[in-house]
Amino acid sequence: MTPSYVALDVEIPSDVKQIEPIVSLVTEHCRKLHLSRRQCSLNIPVALSEALSNAIICGNREDPQKHVRLRATVSDTALVFDIVDEGRGFEMSDVSNDPTTEESIEAEDGRGVFLMRKLMDRVEQFKGPNNVVRLTLNR
């Protein structure tokens, strides 16, 4: 197994205004890891924003008493982001809509999970006491 280390482990309040600064911090770290320009400026910021936004809005219902934890683990082969909220979350496996169809293209919502799946190599959800969404991007 490839050795890995925790590059970042932070908690943010359930406020969507917190997303941009934390994503900016992560992408800065990613640039230092010499990931591709596209991974740093598209895949990671967009997928991470979607996951954090889901955690804050759907998971914690924007409750200021609740927090979202972001843990980033790095190995030679992959970056793994665990996004943990304190809510029940939503069932990601239920989200199978294709927002690119003629019927859905003009919908305002419904592209978040689609984008995470398109921009990451793996998107998983683990339910326990908390809701965990794990994003994996191969290096």
């Binding site: 400026s41 967009v46 979607e50 003009e106 919908a107 305002e108 419904g110 592209r111």
Partner: peptide, 17 residues
């Protein structure tokens, strides 16, 4: 512009409509 998330895309769609 740096990046746009699904909410940003959604706003563009809704404004266009």
């Amino acid at each position: 512009t740096g990046y746009i998330d699904s909410s940003g895309l959604g706003v563009l769609v809704s404004l266009s409509k």
